[in-house]
Each structure stands twice: as C-alpha cells, then as structure tokens.
C-alpha cells in the first residue's frame, strides 16, 4: 500500500504528546498503524518527550509513595478482564476492519443521504469530536461543504477525490474551516472511511442549504 496523504505534523505531535481528543486520536492511531513514516515521526516526538522528562524539575513524591507501590506489587494480581473480541452488539457496515477499530464499540448504523451511511463509534472520553465510519456508494458526489470545526478522514476502502488529489486506502485527509470541498467517491467500488469530526458541516449551494437540515453527521 502506498500512502500519499499524511496527517499534518502538528496532529502527529499532539498524538505523541497525548493531547488529542479521543476521536481524533483514534483516526491518527489507525493511520499510523499502517504508516511507517508517521510511526517514525511519532517515535521522534516521544524521544524528545523522554528527553524533556529527563530534564523536568523533580517534585518530591509523597513519603509513602514507594511503600504504596511495593504493596501493590506484592498484592496477588487480579486477573485483568480480556478485551472484548468481536462481540459487537450491532451489525457493522463492514466486517473487515483494522484491528484497532475491531476493538471499538459501535452504535447502530444509519442512512445519511442517498448512497451514504454512517455508523457512530462509542467513545466515552470523546470531548469535542465524534468518530464514525462513513460508507458511500460508488460514484457518490458529496455536497460541497466546509467545516466549522475539523474533519479528519482516513480511507479504509475504495477511494475519493477532491481538489487535494485522490485518496486511497491508508490516505489521510484533513479539513477545517478554510477548506471548501466537494469529494467524489471513486466509481469502481464503495468507499469506507473513518472520520473524526468536530463542529458542523456547512453545506453550500441551493441544494446544500435545502437539505442540510436533514444531513446529520
């Protein structure tokens, strides 16, 4: 797989520093798991963070801190509950997902517009943004839109294109208030994307304004 489009560096750095909202972190994490370049970049930020930790001014620990840790070590370890495996309570838009997504919990999928379905991912820690799978039929032309917040998109299957180029599996697309685009889904197969979105979409054109009350993502 050749990946041509990567997340902006500041998002990778925020991921490495642990500063991303949960939905954004999921999308960057799934991209990075497939992308050696971004893995190296994240590892570099982690190295710099290690150096910063080494240089941090120490703050004295509580008097009993070491004893508390040793007591926890000597406690018989409680069996950790195994991660739930493939026991999704709802049918998925696609059963063949990257491992990190298979471990997520999904809500029921629903139709967004003709030829477009979405399935929310349940993220209890998500604060400002939300994550979902977006399935689009071959040849779907999304409405021209911009964003009040940010939109992080990772192609899982199929492809789409807009002014920024063509996006294939593994490719990452970043949209914010300055981006105004109208993606077109490739005609040969459906397109499945993982999306993290904050804020709202703003539809353009008379049709967009007409239907935007009905398009809820």
């Amino acid at each position: 797989m050749t990946i041509n489009h990567h997340p902006p560096e500041d998002l990778l750095a925020d991921f490495a520093a642990g500063r991303l909202d949960e939905a954004d972190r999921l999308v960057i994490g799934v991209h990075a798991a497939q992308c050696p370049n971004c893995q190296r970049f994240i590892a570099a930020i982690e190295q710099l963070a290690g150096a910063a930790l080494e240089q941090a001014a120490p703050v004295a620990m509580a008097d009993d801190a070491f004893a508390t840790i040793m007591a926890a070590i000597d406690e018989p370890k409680t069996a950790s509950t195994p991660a739930p495996t493939s026991s999704q309570p709802v049918p998925l838009l696609d059963d063949d997902l990257p491992e990190m997504l298979r471990r997520c919990r999904f809500a029921k999928s629903r139709r967004v517009a003709p030829g477009v379905k979405m399935q929310p991912i349940v993220l209890p820690g998500a604060d400002k943004s939300r994550a979902f799978l977006l399935w689009s039929a071959p040849g779907t032309r999304m409405l021209e839109h911009s964003h009040t917040g940010t939109e992080l998109t990772l192609v899982l299957k199929g492809s789409f294109s807009h002014q920024g180029g063509e996006y294939r599996p593994g490719d990452f697309d970043f949209g914010d208030g300055e981006v105004d685009h109208q993606p077109l889904v490739g005609s040969d197969m459906p397109c499945l994307c993982l999306v993290a979105m904050s804020g709202d979409l703003q539809m353009h054109g008379w049709l967009g304004r007409l239907i935007s009350p009905f398009v809820r993502l």
């Binding site: 994240i42 739930p84 471990r103 349940v122 993220l123």
Partner: peptide
Amino acid sequence: DETPEVAL
C-alpha cells in the same frame, strides 16, 4: 463501557 484504550 469496556472500550479499550486506543493510545499506541
């Protein structure tokens, strides 16, 4: 909710 941590 039992969703596991996704941090790598």
